[in-house]
């Protein structure tokens, strides 16, 4: 039981107070911040030989706009996603589980670049993870 008590004490000492009153949209730097993050994400993907082939035929300006809109809306920003649903936009791409994870890693690096706090990173990933089954294996 000593270990459990020590664990609880550590958690209470280490954990910062969760930001109150700030939406995730704010924490990501609102519209401009999200657009910067998505741009960095696309640069990271272009450098990633595991997944860049999936974007070879894509209109990257449109991908940038759609992803930014989608993240803006998901995180509570004043945007309306105008693109196709996830199943439609990924059918035929053959995205594997490993590809999905590679994209998550590219996004994590982009979030690191803009020094987005760990808590906000986790909240964003938790919003995106449920799309896994609408993207992978189609």
């Amino acid at each position: 039981m000593k270990c459990f008590s020590a664990f609880v004490v550590c958690i209470l000492l280490i954990m910062p107070n969760v930001a109150v009153g700030q939406t995730l949209y704010d924490e990501l730097g609102q519209k401009q911040g999200i657009e910067n993050i998505v741009e960095e994400l696309l640069f990271n993907i272009a450098d990633d030989r595991r997944i860049r082939h999936h974007f070879a035929e894509s209109d990257l300006t449109r991908v940038h706009q759609m992803l930014s809109e989608q993240i803006c809306e998901l995180t509570g920003g004043p945007c309306v996603y105008s693109g196709d649903d996830m199943v439609t936009s990924h059918t035929g791409m053959g995205v594997t589980r490993a590809d999905f994870n590679a994209l998550v890693e590219c996004l994590q690096l982009a979030l690191d670049t803009f020094e987005i706090p760990v808590g906000a990173q986790n909240r964003l990933l938790a919003l995106l993870a449920p799309m896994h089954h609408e993207i992978v294996g189609l």
Partner: peptide, 10 residues
Amino acid sequence: AWLAGPFDRT
């Protein structure tokens, strides 16, 4: 695993 569990930690 919970990506954003208590304290927004995984």
